[in-house]
């Protein structure tokens, strides 16, 4: 098994997997605790519109997806602050709209494009050297932002109004968080895919929440669970020639199931 580490694509897959795993887990902690899973889903689907546009006009799909996802996230955020329509409905509207745009763009695309499957479900074995560089750099930036605004983000997630009264700029923190979620989702598309990115934002954190109620430990445990799932999933998908993104998510879900069962049995006793 060890000798596969000599393959360039395996090394790239592992590096990318570890970074994306950590990133998804850390941002996932805030998404889950601030109950933003649905907005995360909306952002992921709007990234699809961006990917489709990138493929159509021959632009870098990561950049077009980030722009699409980020603009959509900002629109959801701004409308939420200034509209009577409920946040859920707004997300549903934007989510459908950008997804529909994506489908139209793909329709315009005369060449049949098999890539789209990779974007939807992820392909860790197809990670290029340039992808690795992007993933590492963006991860470093996002993790730095979380470190720098750790206190503000945490207070915001726990008690938004209390944070605001105490002097924290909660509007800024909200838009920062939306930005970090957008970037994180787009960057992880290569690994787990658009459809599964949100699952991966949520599952490791939900597993970790059963193991610890200490906030700092929660971030650490989520990251560890996430990385374990990514690497285990990668190994399985390589060994048995399975779809990698799906295998990773199935592994993460299996861990979630195992820990659920464990804590249920522990409580039952």
């Amino acid at each position: 098994m060890i000798e596969i580490l000599h393959f360039g694509f395996v090394q790239r897959a592992l590096i990318a997997g570890v970074f994306v795993g950590v990133l998804l887990a850390v941002i996932g902690v805030y998404v889950v605790l601030k109950k933003m899973s649905f907005i995360g889903d909306g952002i992921a689907h709007s990234a699809f519109g961006g990917v489709a546009l990138g493929l159509l006009i021959g632009a870098n799909t990561t950049i077009s997806a980030v722009i699409f996802a980020w603009v959509t996230a900002m629109l959801i955020g701004i409308s939420k602050k200034n509209s009577r329509t409920s946040e859920d409905a707004l997300i549903g509207i934007f989510f459908a709209f950008t997804m529909a745009l994506g489908v139209i763009f793909i329709g315009f695309n005369k060449r049949y494009n098999a890539d789209i499957f990779g974007f939807l479900f992820g392909d860790i074995l197809a990670v290029s050297a340039a992808d690795v560089v992007t993933i590492v750099c963006v991860s470093a930036l996002v993790l730095f932002a979380v470190w720098f605004f750790y206190k503000d983000l945490t207070y915001f997630a726990f008690d938004e109004e209390g944070a605001r009264v105490s002097g924290i700029n909660t509007d800024f923190i909200y838009f920062l968080l939306l930005t970090l979620v957008s970037v994180t989702i787009v960057i992880s598309i290569k690994i787990v895919g658009i459809i599964l990115a949100v699952a991966f934002l949520i599952i490791p954190v939900s597993t970790a929440l059963m193991l610890t109620l200490d906030f700092k430990k929660l971030i650490f445990v989520s990251a560890v669970i996430s990385v374990i799932s990514t690497i285990t999933g990668f190994i399985f998908s390589y060994a048995f020639n399975l779809a990698s993104g799906a295998t990773i998510v199935v592994t993460a879900t299996a861990l979630f199931g195992g820990v659920s069962l464990f804590s249920y049995l522990k409580k039952g006793r």
Partner: peptide, 14 residues
């Protein structure tokens, strides 16, 4: 997931 002391510390965050 937050401890009592950290809740109080939040008052100092800003």
């Amino acid at each position: 997931p937050v401890k009592v002391k950290d809740v109080v510390l939040m008052g100092r965050y800003a």
